[in-house]
Amino acid sequence: MTSYIQKQPFAASAIEQINPLGFGLGLRSEHYPYLMQKPVTGVDWFEIISENYIDNYGYGRHVLEQLMADFPIVMHGVSMNIGSSSALDFDYLEKLKALADFVKPAWISDHLCWTGFAGVNSHDLLPMPLTEESLKHVINRVNQVQDFLQRPLVLENPSTYLEFQNSSLTEPEFFTQLVEQTQCAMLLDVNNVYVSAYNHGFCPRTYIKNLPLKSIVQMHLAGPTLSGHCLIDTHDKPVPEPVWELYQLAQSLCGPVSTLLEWDANIPAFPELVAELNKAKTVLAGQIPHAPVQNNHQQGCISTPLVLAKEKL
């Protein structure tokens, strides 16, 4: 494939300097009281939803500031809209950069998706047709974002429930070209691979093997829900056995990569989350937890719940 834009040397060297952070959890407002009252153990680092702390000068920012003193922080966003046909939102990027100046995160990530078009925002992580047109478009925008932020961008594979007729690339092919052309990095959401593979009928192990493995700097774990004939990325269940198996494979291929457990609805107490996170360590030691994929027997299963951190004081 032809090169769409000149590579950015600063990005390549920056990715090489990223060291594994260990085992982390998403910072959620439900855990603020616990985190501020007890010594925090069993977790190496925290990931924040960037949008929850932009323009937020309340208690959430205070908790974040306290944690920043003791833990590495990663900023994970849901609003960059990197795949949209609309122009990049530089007001958003300006605020993201300002937050990064405050947080000094280990890295900044978002999703390979689009969230809105022509001034409207769906607040969902919507899939892109995987075409040469999309690839060229995303390469151009990732380069713009990296130039603006002056750091490499880390992009996550989304969970998807539909495929476009005109897609001509697989997702691993898309990511491989994207990484090669922009020197961005990849956040491999192992649960998303499992969800998309189930929904679209591809082999998740082959998918992982075909990714640009050297560029994977982080992995996400989460629990999906089976709803009818579809797996939904609900982030509200324990990690099931098939996802642990894929995680084991991915870690064996990538070497030690920072691991993050996501849990965004029906959030358990902090110690329970740490216990679930600790299962990742047993997986790397060769033991796979026997947890089934859970069914949803009710209507209204929500994919990828976006977390609005409500201040509750």
Partner: peptide, 30 residues
């Protein structure tokens, strides 16, 4: 059908409905 693939398990219409229903449910939750 010219845009979205169907499979044996799930139709294009059902696939799109996951996003359409999820859009409303998610924002109602917020």
């Amino acid at each position: 059908d010219t845009l979205i693939k169907s499979t044996d398990k799930i139709s294009a219409q059902q696939r799109v409905d996951i996003y359409a229903a999820g859009y409303v449910l998610r924002l109602v939750d917020c």
